[in-house]
Simulated assay, not measured.
Amino acid sequence: MTPERVQDLIQQVISCQHLEVEGDGHHFYATIVSNAFEGLKLLARHRLINDGLKSYLDSGELHALSMRATLTPAEWEARQQ
């Protein structure tokens, strides 16, 4: 699995305004910015992504995904300043 493939899978789960994925083929790290996170607490944001990728995680095709940040566009913009 490549970072580009993980990025594609995440974009199939939710529409992203910004998405960065890095990794070595086994462990991946993502920064995800999406309107879908509006009104959700951190755990719910992570659950949304993990539930959408469940079949890949369960099969071992996607070994590990760490979410560095799951932000709304407004939260992302505030961090950029």
Rank of each mutant, 00 (worst) to 15 (best):
G25S: 07
L9K: 09
E20A: 14
R68K: 15
Q12Y: 07
Y29D: 14
L65H: 07
T70N: 13
L19Y: 04
R79Y: 03
R68T: 11
A74E: 15
A69C: 03
E20N: 10
I10A: 04
R45M: 06
E38Q: 10
S55P: 09
Q11G: 04
T70I: 09
H63K: 07
G23C: 12
L43Q: 12
L65S: 05
K41H: 10
S34F: 00
I10S: 02
Q80Y: 00
I32N: 06
Q7E: 13
K41S: 08
V6Y: 07
E77M: 09
Y29F: 15
L19P: 03
V6T: 10
L40T: 07
T31E: 09
Q80D: 02
A30S: 10
Y29V: 12
S59F: 00
L53N: 12
A36W: 00
V13D: 03
P3G: 15
Q12H: 14
A36T: 00
S59D: 04
A74I: 10
A74L: 12
Y56H: 15
S55F: 07
D58G: 04
W76R: 04
Q81L: 12
Q17A: 14
L53R: 07
Q12N: 15
A78E: 13
G60F: 01
I14P: 03
L42D: 03
F37R: 00
Q11H: 06
V33Y: 01
A64V: 02
H63Y: 12
N35W: 05
F37K: 01
L57Y: 00
L62N: 02
L48K: 13
E75G: 08
L42S: 13
I49D: 11
F37M: 05
H46E: 11
L48P: 09
K41R: 14
F28W: 10
Q17R: 15
G23E: 07
I49C: 08
S59M: 04
H26S: 14
T31N: 06
V6E: 08
E38P: 00
L43A: 08
L62G: 00
I32P: 02
H63R: 04
N50F: 02
Q17K: 15
A30P: 05
I10W: 05
L57K: 04
Q80M: 11
L42V: 12
T72N: 08
T31I: 08
A78I: 04
R68C: 09
Q11S: 13
V21N: 11
Q7P: 00
P73T: 07
W76L: 01
A30K: 06
L40E: 04
I10Y: 06
H46V: 04
V6P: 11
A64P: 00
V33D: 00
V6H: 05
V33E: 02
A30Q: 06
V21C: 11
Q81I: 09
I10F: 06
E4W: 00
K41I: 06
V6L: 11
H46C: 06
E75A: 15
Q7T: 02
E4V: 04
A36Y: 00
A78P: 01
E75D: 13
E77Q: 15
D51I: 08
L57H: 01
T70G: 15
A30M: 08
E22M: 11
L19M: 08
I32F: 03
L9P: 02
T2M: 05
T2G: 04
G23N: 10
L65Y: 07
H26K: 13
N35P: 05
Q81K: 15
